[in-house]
């Protein structure tokens, strides 16, 4: 087993942990962290698996850089929305007052 494959498998584990957190945590910031954990896992799988095959490969590295920027943009957007939501309602999770949709 090459070190690259080990990275990919670590990425798989991160995905699993992140998914668990994403599904179960209700606090919005924690859920956002879980999202970022899944993201890191996916990036590790992307690079590790590709480099296991043919050594250092700039293409997945560039893809991951793009992916990181997209993830940062999404995270920043989510933080701005969460902050404003907290300011308006005082809630830190979406489940606080049930499914009232009015």
């Amino acid at each position: 087993m090459s070190p690259d494959l080990l990275y990919a498998l670590a990425g798989v584990v991160l995905c699993g942990i992140g998914l668990f957190g994403f599904l179960l945590l209700e606090h919005l910031l924690r859920r956002l962290l879980a999202f970022n954990l899944i993201g890191s896992g996916v990036f590790l799988v992307l690079i590790g698996l590709a480099q296991h095959r043919n050594g250092p490969d700039p293409v997945p590295q560039a893809l991951v850089l793009t992916g990181i920027v997209v993830a940062i943009a999404a995270t920043a957007l989510a933080v701005v929305l969460i902050r404003r939501y907290y300011h308006l309602t005082g809630h830190t999770s979406l489940a606080d007052d049930g499914e009232a949709q009015s």
Binding site: A8, F22, F35, I38, V42, A50, A74, L81, L94
Partner: peptide
Amino acid sequence: RAALRYLFAVLLGSLVYLLGVALLYG
């Protein structure tokens, strides 16, 4: 509230899609 629910759903969807892309590229 709606936007946050929407955002979390689509972000998870995109990442799961990307995971599939990673496997295919690998």
